[in-house]
Amino acid sequence: MGTAVATWSPVQWPGLDGAPRARFSLAVVGDVCIEFRTELADRSFTELTDDHLGYAPARAIVAGTAVNLARHAIGYFRSITVIGKIGDDPFTPIIRHCLRDLGVADRLRVEAGVPNGFSVMLRDRPPAGGRGVRLLVTGTEPPSRRLTEADVRRSSAALERADVLFVDGYSLLSPVSRAGMRAAVRVARAAGTLVAFDLVPHDIDRRLPLDDVLPVLADADVIITEAPTVAGLLARPVPREPAGARELLPALDRTLSRVTDRTPLWLLRFGATDLENTLAYRRDRLLLEYSTGYRPGMLRTGYGDRLAVSELYWWLSRV
C-alpha cells in the first residue's frame, strides 16, 4: 500500500474555523445532556495519593456527542438537525434554548417524568509531550440510551433531507438506542443520505463484542476513529509508528468483508496523542495522509469534532 502524503487537505481548506460558505445539510443522532467541565490544572491524576482540593475554571454546558458535533458544524453546514431523547426537568428548556440559539433544528423527544442525563468531565495536567487523561463520568441510565426506533422514525423527513447523517458508537451501548440508531441509518441509506460513523468510545472493545459493532460499520459510508481504538477492536497491538497505523487499514477491510462487500472511507487518527495525523483510506488504497494541526499542549476538547466537520465538508464538496 503506497503512501500519498497530502499537499491539500481538509485542514487547509475549508480549515478548522469554518467554511467560506455554509453548504449541505447535516442530521446528528446521539447523546444530549448537561455536562460539568473542569480540570486538575496543577498535577496529573497519577500524582494524587490522597484527597485533594484544586481551583480551576468550572462550567456547566449543554453537551453530549450530538450537541458537541452540532456546535462545531454551524460554521460549515447550512442546516443542522439534532435527533435524540432528553428528560423532563428544569434543564429541559435550557437544552432547547441552547439549540435554538445555535440555529440548530431540535428533533428531541422528551421522556416524561425522568431527569436529564448528566456527565462530569475532568482533565488532568498533561505530561510534557503527552495527551493527559480525561475522566468522564456519566449517569447510568440517561434518556439518550432509550431513543427508540419509533422515536427516530418520527424524524424520518429530516434524515431523508440531509446530505449526511452523523452517528456514534455510544448509541451501541444500549440495545434500545442501538436499534434506534440503526433505524436512522436505514432511513438515511434508503434516501441516499451519506452515513458517517464515529467509532467511539475508545475502549469499545471492552464494552461490546466485535460482532455487535460490525453491522454498523458495514452500513457506514465514512468511519472516523483512532488507531488504538481499532487495534483494541481487532485484538492487535497498539501501533507506535506510522507504519503500524497504516497496517491496521487492510486488517479492517479483511474483518469488515466478513459481513459486507461495501467499501467505506476510513479516517484513521494516529500520532503521539492519537490526534496529530489522519489516514484517509478506501479498500486497498491510501487516498490521503495529512497533519491535523493538533500539537501536544493544545486544547484537546472539541478538536476532534472540529476536524470531523471540516473533513465531512471537504469530502462532500468533492463528490
Score class of each variant (00 low, 15 high):
G129N: 01
D101I: 10
R145V: 10
V120N: 11
V133K: 01
D106Q: 15
E149R: 14
H97F: 14
S174L: 09
L69T: 07
H97M: 15
G103P: 05
R134I: 14
T81D: 06
A66V: 07
I80K: 02
L199H: 03
R206T: 15
D89V: 10
A112L: 15
T92K: 10
H202S: 13
I204M: 08
R109P: 07
R154D: 13
G132Y: 00
R146D: 12
A73D: 04
G117K: 01
Y170A: 00
R125W: 06
G64I: 03
V120I: 15
L135Y: 09
I83V: 12
A191Y: 05
G75V: 07
A183F: 00
A105P: 05
S79K: 06
T148E: 14
V82H: 01
V187F: 02
I204P: 03
S156D: 08
V82K: 01
G180I: 05
E160K: 15
V133D: 00
Y76W: 07
V137A: 13
R96H: 13
P209K: 07
D163I: 07
D88T: 09
G87F: 03
D198K: 04
G130K: 01
S156Y: 05
S79P: 04
F197S: 03
K85R: 15
L208V: 10
L69I: 12
R96P: 04
P93M: 15
V82A: 01
R134E: 12
R189P: 02
D89R: 11
R206K: 15
M121I: 14
A191V: 10
M121P: 06
E111Y: 09
F197I: 08
V187W: 00
G103M: 11
L147M: 15
F77R: 02
P209A: 12
G87P: 01
D163K: 06
I86M: 09
R186A: 08
T92L: 13
R154F: 10
V110E: 06
A179P: 04
A150L: 13
N68R: 06
R182K: 15
I204A: 06
P201T: 09
L102I: 09
D106T: 11
S144T: 10
S174R: 07
A162R: 01
